[in-house]
């Protein structure tokens, strides 16, 4: 039984994609799992110039999840293209390059560089949702108008399939998702982390030196499911679900809600073998329940009439 999924013009060995920022460029995880049945891997969020990320404590554990304030520490896109892309391409899975810019010009310049390597890149994921930087990203991703302008701009200069990773820190994710679709995105990814805070009661200071960080893990799964469903109901392009997936049942919930693929991240930090375990369990589940293709259950949610 295969877990293969077709989304847009691409096929994926399974619906399981490794989320950006949770697996670096795949080297560390490749010592623990085989990538042959993984649907794809998203690179660490890349910027035009190298970034050190935020100072001080960058992680705080919270009930059923964690906050991070890494702040896009990365070696810069040129270093990535020279030193990491070949490794990602060698993993025999879809290669998704996540880019994060200060402004539209950053996204354009990075896309131009990626165009020169389009034979090695399956998808360009526009990060319009990192909550840990002061410019670009979530600032752009909070405004449907800016999303539309940026996606249309990038769309006009590349033929690489384009995913837009959305932030949940907005009033209406349906509006931002629609803006991405109208701009020419091939899919939206929902959701990135929720902006949050953890406080040390003795010092009366936030645990994170950045004061705030992005909340991930099972704590955000209900929010992610609701948002994936909202997006899938208004869009004609596919939705990639993301947020708190820990096991195969969570994956099934996201597919039923309307996701064609899912990204997992925080679960891999808890157990590095989680992606393979989920795939094994999905194979077992589809065999036992005589499900021919997982795509048959995408968007099968039956809402109550209220």
């Amino acid at each position: 039984m295969s877990l293969r999924m077709s989304v847009g013009t691409l096929t994926f060995e399974s619906p399981i994609i490794l989320a950006s920022g949770t697996c670096n460029f795949g080297r560390e995880l490749s010592e623990y799992i085989s990538f042959s049945r993984i649907g794809g891997i998203c690179s660490k969020g890349l910027t035009l110039s190298p970034r050190l990320g935020n100072p001080g404590c960058r992680v705080a554990e919270t009930p059923s999840g964690m906050l991070n304030s890494v702040g896009l520490q990365n070696p810069g896109i040129d270093y990535f293209l020279q030193n990491d892309l070949d490794f990602m391409s060698s993993l025999s899975t879809r290669v998704i390059v996540n880019v994060a810019g200060h402004d539209p010009d950053d996204y354009v310049r990075m896309t131009e560089r990626l165009n020169d390597h389009s034979d090695q890149i399956d998808i360009l994921e526009l990060n319009l949702s990192c909550p840990n930087v002061k410019e670009g990203c979530m600032i752009i991703g909070s405004s449907p108008k800016e999303i539309f302008n940026l996606v249309a701009l990038v769309r006009s200069i590349t033929s690489i399939p384009l995913w837009v990773k959305l932030t949940p820190n907005v009033t209406s994710i349906a509006d931002t998702a629609l803006a991405a679709q109208e701009g020419g995105a091939d899919a939206v990814v929902a959701i990135n982390t929720l902006l949050g805070m953890a406080i040390d009661i003795r010092s009366a200071r936030p645990i994170l030196q950045n004061n705030t960080g992005g909340l991930s893990g099972p704590a955000i799964k209900p929010i992610a499911l609701r948002m994936v469903n909202e997006c899938s109901r208004v869009l004609s392009i596919p939705v990639v679900g993301c947020g708190g997936i820990m096991n195969y049942k969570d994956v099934l919930e996201f597919l039923i809600a309307g996701a064609s693929l899912v990204e997992i991240g925080t679960a891999t930090m808890v157990h590095p073998t989680t992606p393979e375990c989920i795939i094994n369990d999905l194979e077992k589940y589809t065999a036992e329940n005589h499900i021919e293709s997982l795509s048959d259950i995408v968007g099968t949610l039956k809402l109550w009439g209220v």
């Binding site: 995880l29 623990y32 992680v59």
Partner: peptide, 8 residues
């Protein structure tokens, strides 16, 4: 968090 160098 991860202990193996992925999450930075």
């Amino acid at each position: 968090a991860c202990g193996i160098g992925m999450c930075l």
